[in-house]
C-alpha cells in the first residue's frame, strides 16, 4: 500500500512535468519552460548526490564541482568548434552531443574517482571537509583559467541537435530531452540501488565495519559509487551548459554544493525521487519568493534548521510515508 502511494505521488509529479511545457505555451508564458528545464537539470544533479549521500551515507560537500566540470567540458568544446581552434592544438572542438556529453561524464567521473581516492579513505567530518576543500580547488582552478574566461565565465554558442532529431534551441523539444534523461537517470539509479552493488553500498552506510567483516572490500564499492555520482552530476552540468550557452565558476561555488544537499534532504534522502521534488521546491522558492520578499533566506535558513530537527523524512516521506525512512531495506 505504501509503495502505491509513493507511485501515485511520483506519477502525478512526473505527469505534471510532462504537461508543463504545453500549459506554458497555451498561456504564452514560454519563459517558464526554460525555468523548469533548469529545475529538471538540477534534479538530475540532486539524484546523483542522493546515490552517495542518501544510499551510501557519504556526505559529499563538493557535488557542484562535478556539475561544473561537465558543464565546462561542453562549453570548451563548443567554444573551440565555434572558433575553429583546435583544443590544446590537438583535436578540433565539437558540438556533437554524442561526443561532448559522454566526455563530460568521463571527465567529471574521473575527477570524482581521483578525489575519491583521497577522500574515501576518511569518513565523517574529514570526508565532508576534504570534499569541500577539493571542490574549492576545482572552483579556483576555473576561476584562474584565463583562457576560458576565468571568473567572468565563458560565452559560447551551444546550439546543437540531439541525434539530428531535436534542436536544442527548441524550447519545448529540449525540455523533453532533459525530461527523458531525468527519467532515464531515475530508472537506472533505481536498478542500481536494487542490485547487489546497491546492497553493498547500503550496507556500508549502515555499518561499514560489519561489511568488511563479512568479507566485502568496501573501498572499491564506495569509489565506484562516488565515481558514478560524479559522472551523472557531470551529465547534468553538460545539459546546463547547452541550456545556458554560458558558464562561469559560480555554478561550482561551495554554497551550490550546499544547496544540492538541501535539495536532497528537503525531498527525502535515499528515495531517488525525493531529490527531484526537493530540487523543484528549492528552485521554485529561490526563483519566485524574491518577487514577494527580498529577504526570503531569513526564513528559509531557520526553516532548514527546523526541517533537520523535526522533519527529516523529506517531502516524499511526508507525502507518502513508508514503513522505514529510507528505501532498500
Amino acid at each position: 500500500m505504501a509503495l502505491d502511494r509513493r507511485a501515485i505521488v511520483i506519477a502525478v509529479l512526473l505527469g505534471a512535468f510532462a504537461v508543463l511545457p504545453l500549459a506554458a505555451e497555451l498561456l504564452d508564458q514560454t519563459w517558464y519552460i526554460g525555468q523548469f528545464r533548469k529545475i529538471l537539470i538540477f534534479a538530475i544533479a540532486a539524484v546523483s548526490l542522493d546515490l552517495i549521500l542518501g544510499y551510501g551515507g557519504m556526505v559529499c560537500f563538493g557535488q557542484a564541482a562535478f556539475f561544473g566540470i561537465g558543464a565546462y567540458v561542453v562549453a570548451i568544446l563548443s567554444w573551440h568548434a565555434q572558433r575553429n581552434i583546435p583544443v590544446f592544438g590537438l583535436f578540433p572542438g565539437t558540438k556533437a552531443i554524442w561526443i561532448t556529453w559522454p566526455l563530460a561524464m568521463l571527465v567529471a567521473g574521473s575527477t570524482a574517482a581521483l578525489i575519491g581516492l583521497f577522500s574515501l579513505r576518511t569518513a565523517g567530518i574529514h570526508f565532508i571537509m576534504i570534499t569541500l576543500a577539493f571542490a574549492q580547488m576545482i572552483y579556483f582552478f576555473f576561476v584562474s583559467l584565463r583562457a576560458y574566461g576565468g571568473e567572468d565565465g565563458l560565452r559560447f554558442r551551444s546550439e546543437t541537435t540531439v541525434f539530428g532529431l531535436v534542436d536544442t534551441r527548441d524550447e519545448v523539444g529540449f525540455y523533453y530531452v532533459v525530461y527523458a534523461i531525468l527519467c532515464l537517470v531515475l530508472f537506472l539509479s533505481w536498478r542500481l540501488v536494487r542490485s547487489r552493488f546497491g546492497m553493498v553500498i547500503l550496507g556500508v552506510r549502515e555499518n561499514e565495519r560489519r561489511m568488511r567483516a563479512l568479507g566485502f572490500a568496501t573501498f572499491p564499492y564506495k569509489l565506484a559509487a562516488f565515481t558514478i555520482a560524479g559522472a551523472v552530476s557531470g551529465l547534468a552540468g553538460a545539459l546546463f551548459a547547452v541550456e545556458e550557452s554560458f558558464i562561469s565558476p559560480a555554478v561550482m561555488h561551495w554554497t551550490r554544493s550546499g544547496d544540492l544537499i538541501v535539495m536532497v534532504v528537503l525531498g527525502g534522502m535515499g528515495t531517488l525521487f525525493g531529490p527531484v521534488a526537493g530540487a523543484t521546491l528549492f528552485l521554485l522558492m529561490e526563483k519566485f519568493i524574491p518577487d514577494f520578499t527580498e529577504h526570503w533566506k531569513l526564513i528559509f535558513g531557520p526553516a532548514i534548521v527546523l526541517i533537520v530537527l523535526f522533519a527529516k523524512h523529506g517531502l516524499i516521506g511526508w507525502a507518502a510515508p513508508k514503513g522505514t525512512q529510507r528505501e532498500g531495506h
Binding site: 556526505v59 565532508i128 550546499g258 531569513l298 535558513g301 526553516a303 532548514i304 534548521v305 530537527l309
Partner: peptide, 25 residues
Amino acid sequence: RALYQRDHLDQVLATFGLILFFNEL
C-alpha cells in the same frame, strides 16, 4: 545543543541554514 547527538549531515545542513540566516540578517 539539539544537534550534538545527531550525525554530521544534520549538523552540516542546520549550520548551512544558519549561514543563510545570518548573511541575510
